[in-house]
Design a protein around this nucleic acid. Sequence first.
DNA 1: TAGTGGTCTAGACCACGAC
DNA 2: TCGTGGTCTAGACCACTAT
Lengths: 242, 242
Amino acid sequence: MDKTDRSTGLRTQIISHVVGRIMSGEWKPGDRIPSEGALTEMFGVSRMTAHHALRELAGRGFVVRRSGSGTYVAEPSAYVSEYRHLDVLEEIATRGGHHRAEVIHREMRSATPEEARAFEIDANGSLFHALVLHLEDEVPLELEDRLIAPRFLPDAMEIDLTCQTLFSRLMLVRPHREGSEVLRAVSGSPSETKLLRVDTGTPVLEVVRRTWSTEGIVTIARILRAGTAAQLVGRIKTVSGQ
Amino acid sequence: MDKTDRSTGLRTQIISHVVGRIMSGEWKPGDRIPSEGALTEMFGVSRMTAHHALRELAGRGFVVRRSGSGTYVAEPSAYVSEYRHLDVLEEIATRGGHHRAEVIHREMRSATPEEARAFEIDANGSLFHALVLHLEDEVPLELEDRLIAPRFLPDAMEIDLTCQTLFSRLMLVRPHREGSEVLRAVSGSPSETKLLRVDTGTPVLEVVRRTWSTEGIVTIARILRAGTAAQLVGRIKTVSGQ
DNA sequence: TAGTGGTCTAGACCACGAC
DNA sequence: TCGTGGTCTAGACCACTAT
């Protein structure tokens, strides 16, 4: 056997077998599936191989393992939608378009009490604030209203924002791997809809993201998209109901 | 050592060590990290333990492993937002609210040519169509406009929709684990905004989901939410740039 | 050629759950 | 008590990569 061919490996055979039974409906949610010992005999493999196959399936959300009891098909009572966001520059590049950024505002200023709380800094501590309009082939795509804790990007005021985004710059100096996001449909303010070149009252997709590193909140971004750009495409995965 | 305490297991120690270095920025994207052999010596563990720790980290997107070369910190050039959707009934239950459903339409009818293509069925094949308004404490929360391929839910016309959702019913008989989703901010039609009890022109969050099982498309749902309900909360994960 | 990750084994001990 | 999953080991062979 080719030891590196993932499609014929013993572990993969077990995984395919289990996934097939679950997807076809033969093994239904809540059903107990063969134990490690049973799979060991069925497939003629060692217990470790069966164990790691089931462990991987648990990680992928197909099964739930209960020590001392058994392995069960996960209850699909919930599902998650995954939206993969690229940096605006990359998003436009993948469509073959041309990107241009208009810097509407860029300032270092004192935090409002509310912002100070959000960033967990002293009242009146300084924050970097930028309002940037991203255009694809000269059509407004996205309005980016971003606050950044200056300690993470000390040279924020000097960065050339026409050829790189604040997002990518932040990722370079401080990869932040956790965050929360709130998504809403709103009516943009007159100044915002004017920048996005849509009629007042046009529905706008608003995304507020806050991302943090181990040392605290890095940035809070409010992203607005309107018109045909106000569309996100994602994929759905069913997950365990726990 | 307690063999089942996941927080002190050897594998977990290695994972924590690596994640810590990456999160703190000490190991930057693209950096090569210690090999299985090196970790084996550093932690005094067997190679298999180091291997499975790194394998799990690769599965979680923290590192990229290249056979023959080494293990590298993943490039965080993209990130995904995860929105966890519950069944409307469960969502309301978690908030302690009371659910009521109003069935606006329910019919078995011929598919339009467009729908027939989407469902990959014969032209004029039959489809089940339902328009259901879900209310939380008598306040409209969500308008559900759903098409279902009848073969997956033959008793669709007889189901009591006041105490269960079509979603949960479908999940019971045919757990579908894959789907796509398009999310937009739109102006609802007059009839839709009237049902949702918001002013005409109010921004509405529209989600169109199509989900499929191994035997084809199961259902296409168009979900509308307006006002304060038009808000989704998700979490962000940075993923490898590949 | 040496080092890397990919795969698999046979055996061990442990904690937990069901009976 | 017995079967379950959780953890770990020591060793093996393989394919690929860098040099």
